[in-house]
Amino acid sequence: MRRFLPWIIIGGLVLVAIMYYINVTNGAVVVDQAVKKEWGNVETSYQRRNDLIGNLVNTVKGAADFEKETLTAVIEARAKATAVTIDPTNVSPEQLAAFNSAQSGVSSSLSRLLVSVERYPELKANANFLKLQDELASTENQILTARTRFNESVEVYNNYVLKNPRKLFLSDYKEKAAFKAVAGAEKPVEVKF
């Protein structure tokens, strides 16, 4: 029995190491899937906004013959925003910057559209327009929440895969980028009538 004791100890240590490795990699899969889920929620929120913008543009177009340039800017910004896609398995700061840039173009042109609408009192009183405006405000809040949750899940993921000793086993899992504010976001928006 004594001569097998070293082999039993070595076997036990190997078994513990294997179990630790399995636990670490399974944990990485869990936090990676959480990031992917939250990214899906971000995309869903932006898709909802893009869908609502189409309805808003049609409502405004039908109720008032206003600046075609503003309407065109909203439609083009929406098209650009829907063209930018990100693979959540390999999110880089550059990809997020391009995505943020496209989405800020939508926000900017949408703001100009809503300012243009101020010139049309009959449109502002239109129940459909008011409902769409409320839906857009709600959607912007959903986008903020989705982005915040995405950043939180990226933080959990990065903490998990970058801490020692786990990072020794998780070299295939790279650090993920989080959302950052768009350049100039710290300045207040100036609305002129």
Results as ranks from 00 to 15, higher is better:
Asn41Met: 02
Leu71Pro: 09
Asp87Phe: 05
Thr89Ala: 14
Asn50Tyr: 12
Val84Asn: 01
Val57Ala: 00
Thr82Cys: 03
Leu71Phe: 13
Ser45Val: 04
Gln47Leu: 06
Gly40Asp: 03
Glu43Ile: 04
Arg78Val: 01
Thr85Pro: 06
Trp39Glu: 02
Asp51Glu: 04
Arg48Pro: 11
Glu69Arg: 15
Leu56Lys: 14
Ala77Thr: 08
Ile53Ser: 07
Tyr46Trp: 14
Lys37Leu: 09
Lys80Asn: 08
Asn55Asp: 15
Thr44Ala: 08
Thr85Glu: 00
Val74Pro: 09
Ala77Glu: 13
Arg48Cys: 11
Ala73Asn: 11
Glu76Ala: 00
Gly40Phe: 07
Gly40Glu: 04
Ile53Met: 03
Gly40Met: 05
Glu38Asn: 00
Leu52Trp: 11
Thr85Asp: 02
Tyr46Ile: 12
Asn58Ile: 11
Glu69Tyr: 03
Arg78Phe: 04
Ala63Glu: 14
Glu43Met: 02
Leu71Gly: 04
Lys61Cys: 12
Ala77Val: 14
Asp87Cys: 06
Asp51His: 00
Thr44Ser: 14
Arg49Phe: 15
Trp39His: 02
Asn58Tyr: 13
Thr72Tyr: 10
Gly40His: 10
Leu56Asp: 04
Val57Pro: 01
Lys36Glu: 11
Gly40Ile: 06
Val35Lys: 01
Ala64Arg: 06
Trp39Asp: 02
Glu76Pro: 12
Lys68Phe: 06
Pro88Val: 01
Asp87Asn: 08
Ala73Leu: 07
Ala83Met: 05
Phe66Pro: 02
Gln47Ile: 05
Asn50Pro: 11
Val74Asp: 06
Asn50Val: 10
Thr82Gln: 09
Gly62Leu: 08
Val42Ser: 08
Leu56His: 13
Arg49Gln: 15
Thr59Pro: 15
Asn41Pro: 03
Lys37Pro: 07
Asp65Gly: 15
Val74Lys: 09
Gly54Arg: 10
Asp87Ala: 00
Asn55Glu: 15
Lys80Leu: 03
Arg48Asn: 15
Glu67Pro: 09
Thr70Val: 15
Val42Lys: 07
Asp65Val: 14
Asn55Pro: 12
Thr85Lys: 07
Gly40Ser: 14
Ile86Glu: 01
Gly62His: 05
Ala64Thr: 11
Arg49Asn: 15
Gly62Met: 06
Ala79Glu: 06
Arg78Cys: 06
Lys36Val: 01
Val60Thr: 04
Ala73Cys: 14
Asp51Ile: 09
Asn90Met: 09
Tyr46Arg: 12
Lys68Met: 02
Gln47Tyr: 07
Ala81Val: 06
Thr59Val: 13
Val74Ala: 09
Leu71Met: 11
Gly62Gln: 07
Leu56Thr: 15
Ala81Glu: 04
Leu56Pro: 01
Leu71Cys: 00
Val60Pro: 03
Ile53Gly: 05
Thr85Val: 00
Thr89His: 02
Thr70Met: 00
Ala73Gln: 09
Ile53Leu: 08
Lys61Gly: 11
Tyr46Ser: 12
Val60His: 02
Leu52Arg: 06
Val84Cys: 02
Val74Glu: 09
Ala64Pro: 01
